[in-house]
Amino acid sequence: MDSTSTTRARRWRVAGVAAAVGAVVAAATVVGTAGTAGADPGTTAVPRHALTGYWHNFDNGSVVQKLGDVAPAYDIIAVSFAEATGTPGEIDFTLDPAVGYASEQEFKDDIAAKQAAGASVIISVGGANGHVAINDSASAQAFASSTLALMDEYGFDGVDIDLEAGINAQYLTQAMEAIHASAGDDLVYTMAPQTLDMQSTSTEYFQLALNTREFLTVVNMQYYNSGSMLGCDGQVYSAGSVDFLTALACIQLENGLAPSQVGLGVPASPSAAGSGYVDPGVVTDALDCLTRGTGCGSFVPDQTYPDLRGAMTWSVNWDAASGNAWSDVVGPHVDALP
C-alpha cells in the first residue's frame, strides 16, 4: 500500500518548495498582539474536541508499540521526535530499530491506516533533549523545507512544536507561515509549551501562538514538571489540582487564543513525568469546569468555553503501560464535551 496516495491526497509538494519558502520568509511579519480571537481559526482536519497523545520512537521502559497498536481514542498522534541535523534549523527523522518495524514502508502504512481511521499523525520537534535552532531567515527556511519534506515522505499531517528552550518567535513564525502556505488549511499544527512559557503574552512561545493563531490547531500546555504558577486571577496555584489546570488555561483563553486552540496536557501515569500527574477524573473535572461550569475547584472562570479543544497526554506508550487507563476515561469524556 502506498500511504502517500491511497488514504489522503497530499496538498503540498517538496519540489520547488525552497523558492516558495524563501518568498514567504521574506514577506513574513510579526503581529502577535493579544486580544480576543475572532472567528474560530485553525484546521478543520481534526474533530471539534480532540484527544492528543505522543508516540515514542524509542524504548524508555514504558511499552514499545507500533503506531497501529495505539489506542483508537487518540485523534492526534504526535510522533516523537524529529531530530536536528548539522544544518541550522533543518530536521530529519529516523525510525529507531527498537520500535520493531521491519521497514519504513511498514511505518508509513501504519500512518496511512491511522489516517484512514480518522486520526491525524504529525511529526513532533523537540522534547526535553531536542534542540533545533531557528534564529534567522536561513534556519527558518531550512526548518520549513525539511518539515515539508518529512510530511511528503511519510504522509504526516503536520507538525508539533515541543521545543523546551531557544524559541525565537520571529523566525519560527516565518517558518510556520511558510509551512502553512505550502500545506494549506489542512495542516495540523500543535504546540506543547511548558507552564512558564505561557504565563504571559510577552514570552516567545505565547508570541508564536498569537502570531500563528490564524492556522494554529491547538496549544497543549504541559501541566507537569512544574512548580506553582499564577492563574489568570493573579492567585498562585499548585500543580496537581483542578484549579491548576483551569486557572492556567484561563490565561490563554483570555489573552488571544480561541477556546478551540487550548488543550490540557497531562502525564498518562505517575511514571510518565517527574511531577504533575493527576487522576484522569481530575482532568475530566477540569474539562467540565471550563466547558460547562461544573466540577470546578476554588477557581471558577467568569465564563465557559464550550469550544475547548480537549486534552493531551505524554504519552500513548505510558498510557498503554497502564492498560490505557488514561485514554479509557479521558477519551470518551472529550468526545462528549458540548
Rank of each mutant, 00 (worst) to 15 (best):
I167V: 14
I111G: 09
A112G: 14
A258V: 05
H131F: 11
F244R: 01
D186G: 14
D285P: 03
V283L: 14
Y223N: 04
A102I: 00
V14Y: 14
N57K: 09
D92A: 04
N324H: 06
I111E: 07
G130A: 07
S146Q: 15
V121A: 07
V330E: 10
A178Q: 12
L163P: 05
G89L: 05
A273C: 10
G240Y: 10
H131E: 14
Y101V: 08
S137R: 08
S228W: 00
V283K: 11
W55Q: 06
L230D: 09
M176F: 14
W55P: 07
A325D: 02
G61N: 08
A71P: 05
F206N: 02
V188F: 01
Y277E: 13
S226C: 02
G227W: 03
S260M: 15
S120A: 15
V316M: 09
V21E: 15
G297T: 00
D152V: 11
T246L: 14
S238V: 11
T246R: 11
G323Q: 12
Y205N: 09
E214D: 10
Q170W: 05
G126I: 04
T217I: 03
P72W: 13
M221Q: 06
S5T: 14
A286E: 04
N135C: 07
H180I: 05
A149N: 13
A112M: 10
P259R: 03
N220W: 06
S200T: 04
A116C: 06
A175P: 03
Y189I: 00
V132H: 04
D69K: 04
A119W: 04
T203A: 07
M191V: 01
Q303V: 05
A140V: 00
G127C: 01
V300L: 05
A19W: 01
S228M: 00
D335T: 01
I111K: 04
N211A: 07
G297A: 00
Y277V: 06
A73M: 02
D40G: 09
G265R: 08
A50G: 15
E104T: 07
A258E: 05
L216P: 06
A34M: 05
V99R: 06
P259A: 07
Q170C: 09
T44L: 12
M198H: 02
V219K: 00
R292M: 11
R292A: 11
V334E: 11
I134L: 07
A175L: 08
N168D: 15
V14M: 15
I91P: 01
G126P: 02
A311C: 01
D96E: 02
V17S: 15
A321S: 12
E106T: 00
D307A: 12
V99N: 07
V125R: 01
T6E: 09
A34E: 08
C250Q: 08
A321F: 03
F58M: 10
S226G: 00
N324Q: 11
P301W: 00
V70E: 15
L95K: 05
G256N: 08
A249L: 03
L245V: 13
V188G: 06
V30H: 15
P193C: 01
T52N: 09
T304L: 12
L210V: 02
L264P: 03
T4M: 09
A209E: 10
D136C: 06
S298P: 01
K108N: 04
K66M: 11
Q199L: 02
Y189H: 01
W314P: 10
A133R: 08
S124W: 00
S271E: 14
S327H: 08
A119Y: 03
R8L: 13
L248N: 15
A102Q: 06
D157W: 04
M191G: 00
M151Y: 02
A19M: 02
I179S: 03
